[in-house]
């Protein structure tokens, strides 16, 4: 298994890593049993994601996809962020090994979870807009990925 240079770059120098104290949307997906948890923080102003950050427990691909996902939505509208797909994250990283595709799915889900939280805080039911997100489940016994 070999990672692309871009994956290694985002792993070694992750963008937007850490907590965002004034975030108004926080989402977490994955579980520790399966070996990856992604937590996304977004700050939305006038429907624009003005700031974003992440924290990830996981493999190199999990860290790189989180980092790339934050770059892809930073400065974008909420509607554009909703359209972010795992495929776009993978392409931006020049591809992922087949066994790591689930990491990009998790990154997409993490963004959606943060957006759902943002809508909820606005008093809006996120499900019709964002769809159903598998929220973080600490004791998830179901099969990983």
């Amino acid at each position: 298994m070999a990672y692309s240079e871009k994956v290694m770059d985002h792993f070694a120098n992750p963008r937007n890593v850490g907590e965002l104290p004034d975030a108004n949307g926080i989402g977490e997906v994955g579980n520790s049993r399966c070996g990856d948890i992604m937590k996304m923080y977004i700050k939305v102003e006038n429907n624009i994601i003005v700031d974003v950050s992440f924290k990830t427990f996981g493999c190199g691909a999990a860290i790189a996809t989180s980092s790339m996902a934050t770059e892809l939505i930073k400065g974008k509208s909420v509607d554009d962020a909703l359209k972010l797909t795992n495929k776009a994250v993978m392409e931006a990283l020049d591809g992922l090994p087949p066994v790591k595709v689930h990491c990009s799915v998790l990154a997409e889900q993490a963004i959606k979870a943060a957006l759902s939280d943002y809508y909820r805080r606005q008093g809006i039911d996120p499900e019709p807009i964002v769809g159903k997100i598998e929220e973080h489940d600490e004791h998830g016994e179901d099969s990983c990925h």
């Binding site: 992750p14 890593v17 850490g18 977490e28 520790s32 948890i37 992604m38 937590k39 992440f54 924290k55 990830t56 427990f57 860290i63």
Partner: peptide
């Protein structure tokens, strides 16, 4: 660990 939500 500093970037791990599990460590947090």
């Amino acid at each position: 660990r500093s970037m791990s939500p599990l460590w947090e």
